[in-house]
Amino acid sequence: MRAAALPDTREDLHVHESADRARPWQTVVWNDPVNLMSYVVHVFREYFGFSLDQATQLMMAVHNTGHAIVAEGAREQMELHTQAMHDYGLWATVRKAPQ
């Protein structure tokens, strides 16, 4: 009796892993009861180099919706951004970008 040949799933797994690795990571800044809105704008401008308008829009997203995505990219870079936000006293996390 011959054993049935199993389908080769290695290629499918490789494609899935490549797509997952290609998906960017995000630095998310969260609302907190401590920092003034003007300070958050200052941090966004100083650290990320955002314009006043862009920094203000992101700060308002943090204030109104509870969080804002301030950067996307490689995990290591997002971890550095998150640590920098912590150094400034802001609440921030790293997460995988949704598919």
Rank of each mutant, 00 (worst) to 15 (best):
T56Q: 13
M60H: 04
T56L: 10
M59W: 03
N35Y: 02
A61E: 08
R75Y: 07
Y39I: 08
H67C: 14
P33Y: 06
H67L: 11
L52Y: 14
N64A: 07
Q77C: 04
N35V: 15
F50C: 13
A71I: 08
L80R: 12
M60Q: 09
A71P: 00
H63M: 05
N35A: 11
A74F: 11
M78W: 02
P33T: 13
V43P: 00
Y47M: 05
V43R: 06
F50G: 03
T82V: 15
T65E: 11
A55R: 02
A68P: 00
G49F: 02
G66H: 02
H81F: 10
G73H: 01
S51C: 12
M78V: 07
N64W: 01
H81T: 11
F50K: 14
G49V: 06
A55F: 07
T82I: 14
A71K: 03
Y39G: 02
G73M: 12
E79P: 11
T56H: 10
Y47V: 12
T65M: 07
F50T: 12
F50L: 15
N35S: 10
L80S: 05
D53V: 09
I69A: 15
H63G: 02
D53S: 06
E79G: 09
V40T: 13
V34C: 06
L58G: 01
P33A: 15
L52H: 13
F44Y: 13
A61F: 00
L80M: 13
L52G: 09
A68F: 00
D53Q: 08
G66R: 00
R75I: 12
G49W: 02
V41K: 07
E72A: 12
N64F: 06
Q77P: 00
M59K: 01
P33D: 15
F50Y: 15
F48R: 03
L36S: 13
E79C: 11
E76L: 12
F50S: 05
A55I: 11
Q77G: 00
F48N: 04
A55H: 01
T56R: 12
H63T: 08
Q77D: 09
T82L: 10
M59I: 08
N35E: 04
Q57H: 04
Q57Y: 04
R45P: 06
S51N: 08
Q57C: 11
Y47S: 01
N35C: 14
V34G: 03
A55V: 09
R75N: 05
N64S: 11
I69C: 15
V70H: 03
I69E: 11
P33C: 13
A61K: 02
P33K: 09
L58K: 06
H42I: 04
T82A: 15
L52C: 07
R75M: 12
H81D: 08
L36N: 03
V70T: 06
F50P: 00
Q57I: 03
I69Q: 03
D32Y: 05
E46H: 11
D32K: 01
E76C: 01
D53W: 04
Y47C: 07
L52S: 14
A61W: 00
F44V: 14
A55N: 01
V40Y: 02
V70L: 10
D53K: 05
T65H: 12
R75Q: 14
T65S: 14
R75H: 14
S51E: 06
D32F: 07
H67D: 07
L52V: 14
M59T: 08
N64H: 08
F44N: 03
